[in-house]
Simulated assay, not measured.
Amino acid sequence: MSVELNHTIIHSHDNHAAAAFLARILGLEVGAEWGPFVPVTTANGVTLDFASVPDGVEVTPQHYAFLISETEFEAAFARIRELGLTYWADPHGRHPGEINRNDGGRGLYFRDPSGHGMEIITVPYGGFPAQDDRPEKA
């Protein structure tokens, strides 16, 4: 069996709000709550299980990058602007209000309500476009 990432736990101040936020931006569904987790599943089957930390506990910011198609980027970018979110072309926040064109694609960074760094890209670093944007083989 090949190794695949199945799920990861994302700590948040409010697991329901965090899951709903990311699902809205990415155009995904929030799954049914299971124990302390509120899941959001990506197209490749990886589940992001949002879990609330106890009151008074700090959330350690992590980075999550999502490879999406150009069409999905347009939709996500529109939702980011619609919500009035701050976004950057770079992970250090030096280029606010801009997107990047790394590796011939488009990308941007934004923060979720718990402070995690979220990234959407249409081309992986050094790679090919998202699956549905790749040219068809002859």
Rank of each mutant, 00 (worst) to 15 (best):
M1I: 09
S2G: 11
S2A: 12
S2L: 01
V3C: 09
E4H: 12
E4S: 13
L5R: 06
H7T: 08
H11S: 15
D14L: 00
H16C: 14
H16R: 15
A17M: 13
A18H: 11
A18V: 10
A19D: 01
A19M: 01
F21R: 11
F21D: 07
A23F: 04
I25L: 12
I25S: 11
L26I: 03
G27Y: 01
E29L: 07
G31V: 06
A32V: 14
E33H: 03
W34H: 15
G35Q: 06
G35A: 04
P36N: 10
F37T: 10
V38W: 09
P39M: 05
P39K: 04
P39F: 01
P39C: 02
V40I: 12
T41P: 04
A43T: 10
A43N: 06
N44T: 07
G45F: 10
V46P: 01
V46L: 00
T47R: 13
L48F: 11
D49W: 13
S52D: 09
G56I: 09
Q62C: 09
H63W: 03
H63G: 05
Y64Q: 14
Y64G: 12
A65N: 09
A65D: 07
A65I: 05
L67P: 01
L67N: 05
I68S: 01
I68A: 10
S69N: 07
S69E: 08
E70N: 15
T71R: 13
E72H: 14
E72P: 04
F73K: 09
E74Q: 09
E74P: 04
E74K: 05
A76T: 07
A76E: 08
F77E: 02
F77V: 08
A78H: 08
I80T: 11
I80Y: 11
R81Y: 07
E82A: 13
G84R: 00
L85E: 02
T86P: 06
W88P: 06
D90A: 06
G93S: 02
R94Y: 13
H95Q: 12
H95C: 02
P96L: 02
P96F: 02
P96V: 09
G97F: 03
G97D: 06
E98H: 14
E98P: 03
E98C: 03
I99L: 04
I99M: 08
I99S: 08
N100D: 10
N102W: 13
G105K: 03
R106H: 01
R106M: 08
F110A: 02
P113R: 02
H116V: 10
M118V: 12
E119P: 00
E119K: 03
I120T: 05
I120P: 04
I120Y: 00
I121C: 10
P124A: 15
G126S: 02
G126P: 03
G127K: 09
G127D: 08
F128W: 11
Q131S: 01
Q131F: 07
D133S: 02
R134N: 07
P135V: 03
E136W: 11
E136L: 12
K137V: 12
K137C: 12
A138V: 15
